[in-house]
């Protein structure tokens, strides 16, 4: 099997269903197609250059952003507005079809994850996989997340940064 699409922590494998491997191009397509996408940014995205890529992606596609853990702080320091939630809190809201979303415009239909701790993200993605059929999940970390609907593969920093670059170039 292709090493790039075994879950980064291989035992995360949960059953026959596996995430679709996506390229940056496909990821962008998913964002374009979505009506109410949301980006969820975790503490591993606080460091550079991931933070800048994240900011640019957010801006490029006008994505509302939820920051998990204490990630809010670095965005706030840059004057960028995000909604702080615990990763389990935002996941809990996302699984409720009645929730109106962070902009109050209705539940999101696509959630893009970046920078959350692998295993807790994996658990959150499992929640959404099982209990939020109304949402597609996409992870753009450098690790393959089999519980997502779509995920970047496992790769090294260099390749990842190229992937992220492509997510916000015109």
């Amino acid at each position: 099997m292709n090493d790039r699409i075994i879950p980064w922590q291989p035992t995360v494998i949960a059953g026959p269903k596996q995430a679709m491997l996506v390229t940056p191009e496909t990821a962008v397509m998913m964002i374009k197609k979505a009506k109410r996408p949301l980006m969820v940014v975790g503490p591993l995205a606080k460091r550079q250059p991931v933070l800048d890529h994240t900011l640019k992606i957010m801006e490029r596609w006008d994505l509302p952003v939820v920051t998990t853990a204490d990630t809010f702080r670095v965005f706030n320091e840059r004057g960028v507005e995000t909604e702080p939630y615990g990763i389990v809190e935002i996941t809990n809201l996302l699984k409720d079809p009645e929730w109106r979303g962070v902009r109050g415009e209705g539940q999101h239909d696509l959630v893009i994850f970046i920078g959350c701790i692998y295993y807790i993200a994996s658990q959150g993605l499992s929640t959404l996989k099982h209990f939020a059929p109304h949402i597609k999940t996409l992870t753009i970390c450098k690790t393959f997340h089999s519980n997502a609907d779509a995920s970047f593969p496992n790769m090294d920093d260099e390749e990842w940064f190229r992937y992220l670059e492509k997510m916000h170039e015109d």
Binding site: A14, G15, P16, K17, V88, T91, N92, Q123, G124, S126, T127, K129, H130, F131, P133
Partner: peptide, 22 residues
């Protein structure tokens, strides 16, 4: 209760394993 399944399957009886994803 907020559930985060650790596995999509149940393996507790010999009818199984059953996949419970939806």
């Amino acid at each position: 209760p907020f559930y985060a399944p650790f596995c999509d399957m149940c393996c507790l009886c010999t009818y199984g394993k059953c996949e419970l994803l939806g």
